[in-house]
């Protein structure tokens, strides 16, 4: 525990690309992986640096921003309110797909359930009413179905038609 008593404890996190982050304890404890690090090493010194070998600085900064805001929301009793929705919408608006992916991978590694829920929801929303081709393009995935398999899909949809004949 901190010798200064009232002072906020700071957790030190080191990313894969060697950057050191100083994070307020409640925010860092949002990361399940950091929390269990300290649970397992109860006598860890205050200035222990937690290594995060699978996360680089950019997504971590984004994650800290998100978690910090959400810790504050909870403290203010604003959880679930419009304020949170507004923050989330703003937060994700400027994020490119590339950044989104980096965030997801990092949040998954750090094991932050709330953020993962939010990010996967965001992706699901970005895929709303989209064609298979779009989804492939979105994720950059090669179509690995054989032409025969594709043909089968196409044939199946031949049964569908718009409208019906005049009675």
């Amino acid at each position: 525990m901190s010798k200064l008593g009232q002072a906020k404890r700071i957790i030190f996190l080191k990313t894969a690309d060697g950057q050191l982050f100083e994070v307020d304890e409640p925010v860092a404890m949002e990361f399940e992986i950091v929390k269990s690090f300290f649970d397992e090493n109860e006598d860890a010194a205050d200035d222990t640096v937690v290594p995060l070998p699978n996360v680089s600085a950019e997504p971590l900064a984004g994650i800290i921003e998100f978690c910090k805001a959400h810790v504050e929301f909870r403290a203010n009793g604003a959880a679930g309110k419009d304020e949170v929705k507004k923050f989330n919408a703003e937060y994700i608006k400027e994020k490119s797909n590339e950044q989104l992916k980096e965030l997801i991978l990092a949040a998954n590694y750090l094991n932050i359930k709330e953020m993962l829920d939010f990010l996967t929801e965001t992706i699901a929303n970005r895929l709303k009413n989209k064609s298979v081709e779009y989804v492939r393009a979105f994720f950059g995935i090669e179509n690995d179905f054989t032409p025969q398999e594709e043909e089968a899909v196409r044939k199946e949809y031949e049964w569908a038609f718009e409208g019906v004949d005049e009675d």
């Binding site: 929801e121 992706i123 895929l127 009413n129 950059g140 995935i141």
Partner: peptide, 26 residues
Amino acid sequence: KISVYWSSDLPEGILEMISKRLALSD
């Protein structure tokens, strides 16, 4: 070529989480 490659390194658990949130047509 097309922004980002997701499939290769997205854990299956994440893909499941995404797919669970999709409406039937998606």
